[in-house]
Structures are given as structure tokens and as C-alpha cells.
Amino acid sequence: MMRLPWFDYRAPRTVAEAAKILAGEGPGAMLIAGGTDLLPNMKRRHQTPKVLVSLRGIPSLKSFSNGSGVAFGSGLTLTEVIRNEKTPTALYQAAAQVATVHLRNSGTLGGNLCLDTRCTYYNQNHEWRKAIDFCLKKDGDICWVATASKRCVAVSSTDTAPALIALNAKVILEGVPGQREIPVENLYRNDGIDYLSRKPDEILTQISIPGGWESTYWKLRRRGAFDFPILGVAIALQFSSEKIIQEARVALGAAASRPFLLEKASEFLKGKKLSDDVIAETSTLIASRAKPLDNTDMDLYWRKEVADDFAGYALRELRGDDMRATRLRIARFAV
């Protein structure tokens, strides 16, 4: 049986207390919320924190508020996010396609945003990684995906982040000195190792999403459950009454070490109607930014080739096309 290494367990009751423990313990301490990402990693010895600081017992992280937009406490589980009727479409579709029912019951929205980057050379047992003499991300010197690369190219595999980026969401990070709010896209760095701009003693406490968007999220993966995305396309639009796009935000997930906003494609959509030509052109623009590497499931060239199709699905759905049959074939359930 795969087992956790020994650790010391702390259960603060407030964010401030948690931040204080983090600051006091230094890099040996790690936060645990749902545990669905961290615990497998600990069992595989990717992370061996001396101290686990649990966020489970902090009531404020379970908050939800609904005003001009919505604000989710980071400790809400993905199931709670899905069940919330106020959850914007793209976030709902992203959260509903994370892993499995069980993992969504444990895993939190904050946890999914902070998900460790993934790579088929990294997400392996310690013994396996020993057999390749480890890799850049953990215990080794070489990135086996791109041996000339100085940077780890592990893939951002969070579903909810691209959806939240498209929705122009912000997160609050709270540390001992105080708190700051940043756009979700700024939470990430394009580095497979140091993939978050979160400071070590900061805690992601809240996610706030402005209202007014029509949004969608399309996820590419092999199976109808379990699998991480190998491409995630999130688009949020604001239309005029004549169906002219006023605001547009396009984001990609699982296409680099971070989820990111596609400014050019977003800009291109503004002031236009979603004609077939506009959809085709935007899809090409979007796909040009998907640069998959050979470190996830499915054939690399194929993933590159179908990116424009997935972008097209998303845009057509936002235009109002009936995409249910396509959805069902891709997602394997009604999302």
C-alpha cells in the first residue's frame, strides 16, 4: 500500500493563525485543504512536508457571497461549487469535469487553483523516478520532455483556472502582513516548478467573479471521468442586444505550465458577431497558442491539431448553436 511519510499535523481555526504557522515553519510546512492533490504527491514522495497545516477547520474559507458578482471561499469543495446555482457556466462546466465525484467531494476550489503542475516524467512513484535518474522538477537536473530546456515544462492541469481567467475572476491571497487581490491569471507563472506567484506564507482565501458573462468551458481528455485536461478552452463573452460582442476573454488550460489569457484572440472578438468566419478565424488564433508537449496523455501532434476544433465548439456554443450532441460525445455526459 502506498503510504504517507510521517508529518506533523496542525489545524488552525483562522486564516491568520494558519498564515502564522506557515511563516514560522518556513518551507517545511505545506497547506492541505481537500488533500486530493497533495496526498498522492506525498505518497509518491514529491513533497514531504514536515508540517501539514490543515485549512479544513477554518470556517471563513467556506463562505459564499452573491452581489454584483459572486465570491467563493477557497475552502468550498468542487461539489459545493457545482451545486451552487449562482456558479457561472464556465466554472460549473470546469468544476463538474474535474476528476471524479469522490474527488470533487473532497477537493476544494482553492486546491484546484493551486494544483501542482503535472508531467508523465514527474507524476510517478519515487522508484520510477529513480529509474530515470529523476527530472528537473524534483530531485534531478534534466527535463526529459525537452532535454535542452532550462525550465521545467510540467503542465498546468487545473480545469477551474482557465474558466476563472475567462470570467475575469480575482483571488485574495492572505499572509501575515496582510492581504492582496490579484487577477487569477496573475496567480500563475509559466514555470513547471515555481508555478504560482503565491508567496510561501500566503493563503488563497477567496475567489470573486464579476457578473455579466456568458461563458463556456470545453475539456479534452480521454475518458469521461478521472482524467486531467490535456486541453481546456474557456471563453467568456458579453454581448450587446444585437449579439455584437462587447467584451471577450479567452483562456487556455493544459497548454503550458500556466493557464493563460489569450489577449489577441480576445481583442479580435470584440465588436464582432459570431459568424462562421469569425469563429474559424478566432479558432485558428486560439489554436496557434496551444503548444502541447509530449508529457501528457494522447498524441502530441493530434492535441495540437484539434485545438481549433475545441475552440470552435466553445464559440459555437456561445453563439447559441445546439452543441449538446458534441458535448455528449466529448465529455461523455451532459455538462
Binding site: 505518497k43 509518491r44 469522490h102
Partner: peptide, 25 residues
Amino acid sequence: GCELGECGACAVLIDGEPHLSCLVL
């Protein structure tokens, strides 16, 4: 079957909801 949250064999109910006992401290 895996102890990594990849199979569902260890599912139990906690407070009425199904969770994977291999990923619950």
C-alpha cells in the same frame, strides 16, 4: 487498488457523501 485516488475502490461515506478513504487523513 491504488491508494492515489485513481480507482474508487476505497470509497466510503463521510457525513453522507462518498469520499476516497485513501485520500482522507
